[in-house]
């Protein structure tokens, strides 16, 4: 089948970009979306043109590298699917598709469909970890975890950091990503000691990076390839508010010493 693409082309971070039209004449329905772009890039290279830059690694929907907006929907029209796992059988002959990079002040475009998601790393560095003692591994199940907590923590831990939630949000808010990280640690006993500092640090970092505020509209969970629920965002709000109101300066204990 034939697919017509309008691809955002931008040479570098500070360059002006524009949509460029390409025709892909021999698209097989068994191809993934990225394989269609591979074929386009081979054609472009053969013609001496610059291939379209897009990020990818595992192509199994687990690494979180890939992603761009297809006809206004992050990762394209199939719910719960990354763009590397999206197959061309979901499109029809003659379809015209607009491909654009994630758009957010905090995600500057590096080239074409590729953005710099370093802001996510800095949000993680602001609290998305647990401190553990090194040494012999602890016994398995030494710390009991209620089953429902473990399940919800694992659901949240599925986030692959792709950034589709930011791309889909009209406010370019990073709340779904950040709340998934806050939840997957905050629901487990190992995450308790740093729970409040984590919520404060990560929420503050989101704003520092230039992400917007959550309006609870739900576009993020609709496009998330891992179907992370906005229930996690409520948990992050709860942890943040408890932490912000209950925060104590270091060394301040219960009684006036």
């Amino acid at each position: 089948m034939k697919i017509i693409l309008h691809v955002w082309r931008q040479k570098g971070r500070d360059a002006e970009g524009k949509l460029v039209r390409y025709e892909c004449p021999n698209v097989s329905e068994h191809m993934s979306f990225l394989e269609m772009l591979d074929v386009l890039n081979e054609d472009l290279t053969a013609r001496g043109e610059d291939p379209v830059a897009f990020e990818h690694d595992c192509r199994e929907g687990i690494c979180g590298c890939c992603g761009f907006v297809i006809n206004g929907v992050a990762h394209g029209p199939m719910p719960g699917t990354t763009v590397c796992q999206l197959h061309m059988r979901h499109f029809k002959d003659g379809d015209e598709l607009y491909l654009e990079p994630w758009r957010a002040m905090a995600f500057p475009v590096l080239k074409d469909l590729m953005v710099d998601r370093g802001a996510f790393d800095r949000i993680i560095a602001a609290g998305g970890y647990v401190s553990v003692s090194t040494g012999a591994p602890p016994d398995g199940n030494a710390l009991p975890v209620p089953k429902s907590d473990a399940e919800r923590a694992m659901d949240a831990a599925q986030c692959i950091g792709c950034g589709a939630c930011v791309a889909a949000c009209p406010n370019a808010s990073a709340s779904l990503f950040t709340s998934a990280k806050v939840s997957h640690l905050g629901l487990l006993p190992q995450g308790q000691p740093e729970r409040h500092e984590r919520a404060l640090g990560m929420v503050r970092q989101m704003a520092i990076e230039g992400f917007g505020a959550c309006g609870n509209i739900g576009e993020c969970e609709a496009v998330c390839p891992k179907r992370i629920s906005i229930e996690n965002i409520a948990r992050m709000h709860r942890d943040y508010l408890c932490a912000a109101f209950g925060e104590r300066p270091h060394g301040e204990t219960g009684s006036a010493g």
């Binding site: 607009y98 889909a168 009209p170 917007g212 576009e219």
Partner: peptide, 17 residues
């Protein structure tokens, strides 16, 4: 803050949810 967070919009944007 929300307007600043998305300085450039999409040529096409389709609400999904």
């Amino acid at each position: 803050m929300n307007v600043q967070a998305r300085p450039k919009g999409y040529a096409k944007w389709t609400p999904a949810g």
